[in-house]
Simulated scan of single mutants.
Amino acid sequence: MISPEYVLTMARYNAWQNRQMKVAVEPLPSAALTEDRGAFFGSILGTLNHLLWGDATWMARFDGGEKPAGGIPESTDLMPSLSEWAVARFRIDARILHWAESLRAVDLAGDLRWYSGAVGAEVARPMALCITHMFNHQTHHRGQLHAMATAAGAEGWTSDLAFMSEEGPWL
């Protein structure tokens, strides 16, 4: 289904996108970041936080590291400010990159098992499918963020994977 090279490319793409997104939303006033814009997670900051929470949750499942507190309903309040979000985002992107750099083909085989708070049950799904889902989840919410940020007056950013530099910088 996927290869370690694909995972590394997507980890780099994730970091590249988040770096651009941070630059785009930094000039926005706090009120624009926290205004409810009718998105599923409300505001720009709420959606940024949910995406950060989702990545940290999936990485805890993948690498056995620390997972964030709370569940999906609490995910929007993970970081109270954009500056705190930016530090946490940098750290999780570095964690994803480090994990992806050490991934082997055998690590993509078999099932991942975890307790899902979203469905209230133990779940088992193919590891490759779960990894693909994490990257798809990122793309989905970054699309929402792009729409909200540009509607708030921010400059858009380049999201085309084909235009990502092969040399970085990733972070």
Rank of each mutant, 00 (worst) to 15 (best):
Ser3Ile: 02
Ala86Gly: 15
Glu84Thr: 11
Ile92Glu: 06
Arg37Phe: 03
Glu35Thr: 15
Leu28Thr: 12
Val123Tyr: 04
Gln144Tyr: 12
Ala69Gln: 10
Gly46Leu: 01
Gly46Gln: 01
Ser81Cys: 09
Trp157Glu: 01
Ile131Pro: 09
Val106Arg: 15
Phe135Thr: 07
Leu28Tyr: 06
Ser116Arg: 09
Leu97Ile: 09
Ser43Pro: 10
Gly42Asp: 13
Ala147Ile: 02
Phe62Asp: 08
Asp93Ile: 04
Leu82Met: 13
Trp58Pro: 06
Ala105Tyr: 07
Gly70Lys: 04
Glu84Ile: 05
Trp99Val: 07
Ala109Tyr: 05
Arg61Ala: 13
Ala11His: 03
Pro4Leu: 01
Glu74Met: 07
Ile92Ser: 13
Trp114Thr: 08
Ala39Asn: 02
Tyr6Gln: 11
Ser83Pro: 11
Asn49Arg: 10
Tyr6Asn: 12
Ala147Trp: 02
Gly110Ala: 08
Met1Asn: 10
Trp53Met: 05
Thr139Cys: 07
Ile72Glu: 11
Leu103Ile: 03
Met134Lys: 10
Gly117Pro: 08
Ala128Tyr: 08
Met148Lys: 03
Arg142Ile: 09
Ser116Cys: 14
Leu51Gly: 14
Gly70Glu: 08
Pro29Gly: 01
Ala31Phe: 02
Asp111Glu: 09
Ala11Lys: 02
Ala152Glu: 01
Met164Gly: 08
Arg104Cys: 11
Gly38Arg: 07
Gly42Ile: 02
Asp63Met: 02
Tyr13Phe: 12
Met21Gln: 04
Ala121Asp: 12
Arg89Gln: 15
Ala60Asn: 06
Ala31Met: 04
Ala152Met: 03
Met79Gly: 10
Thr132Lys: 05
Ser116Gly: 12
Ala152Gln: 04
Thr158Arg: 13
Leu33Ser: 05
Gly70Met: 02
His137Ser: 09
Ala86Arg: 07
Ile2Gln: 13
Phe135Trp: 14
Trp157Thr: 00
Arg113Gly: 14
Leu45Phe: 05
Leu82Arg: 14
Gly70Asp: 10
Ala118Lys: 05
Ala151Cys: 06
Ala121Arg: 13
Gly54Trp: 00
Ala105Ser: 14
Gly110Asp: 13
Pro126Cys: 06
Pro27Ile: 08
Thr158Met: 11
Leu112Tyr: 10
Lys67Glu: 01
Lys67Cys: 03
Met21Ile: 01
Gly143Ala: 08
Val25Cys: 15
Pro126Glu: 10
Ala149Cys: 09
Ala118Leu: 05
His98Lys: 15
Arg95Trp: 08
Leu8His: 08
Arg37Cys: 06
Asp55Asn: 11
Gln17Pro: 00
Leu82Lys: 10
Pro126Tyr: 08
Arg12Asn: 15
Arg61Asn: 14
Asn18Cys: 03
Glu66Gln: 06
His98Trp: 05
Gln144Arg: 12
Leu161Asn: 00
Arg61Tyr: 11
Ala109Glu: 15
Ala24Arg: 03
Ile72Phe: 01
Ser116Asp: 11
Cys130Tyr: 02
Ser43Ala: 13
Leu28Lys: 03
